[in-house]
């Protein structure tokens, strides 16, 4: 097969992969939305339980197990809060995949439109790689990219330094 033919085949394969990622994200969306709604309803239900507990604070009715009631509600609230944290990783996944999709789409475009021997291509590839690296949302993602696709100029920031420059997940800083 000629080089241009190989490029076209490769471009189509990459484009097909991008479409598969898109489909996978779209297919799971309704379930994630349903999960979000469930968490919303659980949280509202807990609020209603707390209100009901206060409104019916009649010793004859609830005084036997008030501590158990409060403990159970607090435990459920912690579980709801945990669900809220865990569901956010879906959002991170979608963002991560979107950035990879954009990179792959750029790759497919380059493969389809350029001759692979053009020296100017190196700049385009480096620029696409750098754009992906900038958009990645965690140090682990950037390290994986660096390991699989090292920058042409070599590393200018070691991994410890990069890690130190990044805030921890869930961190809060007030200015």
């Amino acid at each position: 097969m000629e080089k241009t033919g190989q490029s076209t085949e490769a471009a189509q394969a990459v484009a097909a992969s991008v479409a598969q990622i898109e489909l996978a994200v779209r297919e799971v969306q309704p379930s994630v939305e349903a999960l979000g709604l469930l968490i919303d309803q659980l949280s509202s239900g807990l609020g209603a339980l707390r209100t009901a507990r206060r409104r019916n604070d009649n010793p004859d009715v609830v005084a036997v197990f008030p501590d158990e009631f409060d403990r159970a509600v607090d435990k459920l609230q912690k579980q709801v809060n945990g669900s809220i944290m865990h569901l956010q990783f879906y959002d991170r996944l979608v963002q991560h995949l979107k950035h990879v999709q954009d990179y792959l789409s750029g790759t497919a475009g380059e493969l389809a439109s350029h001759s692979m021997c053009d020296p100017a291509d190196a700049e385009v590839w480096n620029s696409m790689r750098e754009r992906l690296r900038t958009r990645l949302i965690s140090q682990a993602q950037r390290q994986l990219l660096d390991a699989m696709l090292p920058p042409p100029e070599g590393f200018n920031v070691n991994s410890e330094q990069a890690r130190a420059e990044c805030a921890t997940q869930g961190s809060v800083e007030l200015f």
Binding site: I84, M85, Q88, F89, T168, Q169, G170, V172
Partner: peptide, 18 residues
């Protein structure tokens, strides 16, 4: 001009305290 910076995923308890 931001007042603060919270990195996702956020902890509901920490966010509310902030």
């Amino acid at each position: 001009g931001a007042t603060g910076w919270v990195v996702k995923p956020f902890s509901p308890d920490r966010l509310l305290a902030t």
